[in-house]
Design a protein around this nucleic acid. Structure first.
Length: 194
DNA sequence: CACCAGGAATGTA
DNA sequence: TACATTCATGGT
């Protein structure tokens, strides 16, 4: 099934290279991955800029400030109380695992054990912050499969297996493909009977 | 005015 | 397993 690769090339031709993830550091990717949950990226940028302005975009600083202050700074990204708490949990775990040499599957389980990190967020962190080959699935990706390939799976990991088994295992391809699918999803509006 | 965005946890049956 | 609800701001 190199049809997946053909689809990738047509997306690339149509939308151009996306160059995800926009961030100054790996840690900023982790923060962004949590802040962007069910929120548009524009609002995440506002929250990130608030943190950047105060030089708070480091694990040490995030753990230092009280939740009440963190909540105010990240408010534009929505769900700010949950996210403030979850940023701290993720930061503690990030410090613990960043320099460790654990297997990708165990790394994924470590992330999934945290409150506030589900499969999509975990895989985003693994791919875009840890530079490990795992294919990120989101709502757009599922719609993409149905619209372009007439394919539907039951589980998140079934979609992930499908992409990982039918594409060359290249880090940059994984990163770019997911970004392109999101860009496609933003532009592609369907009647919601899909 | 309604609807959704680069989700996840919790509760119900 | 399959849905429904909650969390919440900001753009269109």
């Amino acid at each position: 099934m190199s049809e997946l690769l053909d689809l990738y090339n047509s997306l690339l031709a149509e939308y151009g290279k996306q160059n995800w993830w926009p961030a100054d550091s790996k840690y900023e990717v982790v923060i962004g991955a949590i802040l962007t949950q069910n929120t548009n990226w524009n609002n995440v940028e506002k929250a990130l800029n608030n943190l950047r302005k105060e030089n708070l975009l480091s694990p040490k600083e995030i753990l230092k400030i009280p939740n009440s202050e963190l909540e105010i700074l990240i408010r534009p990204s929505g769900f700010y109380k949950q996210k403030a708490e979850r940023l701290k949990l993720a930061t503690k775990k990030w410090i613990e695992i960043y320099n460790s040499k654990i297997e990708t599957i165990n790394l994924r389980n470590e992330l999934l054990s945290l409150k506030g990190i589900g499969k999509e967020t975990a895989d985003s962190i693994i791919l875009y912050a840890m530079d490990r080959r795992i294919f990120v699935i989101d709502a757009y990706t599922k719609r993409f499969c149905k619209v372009k390939l007439n394919l539907e799976f039951k589980e998140y990991d079934d979609y992930r297996d499908f992409f990982e088994k039918n594409l060359p295992r290249e880090l940059e391809l994984y990163k770019e493909y997911h970004a392109l699918i999101v860009e496609w999803g933003k532009n592609f509006r369907t009647p919601k009977d899909l």
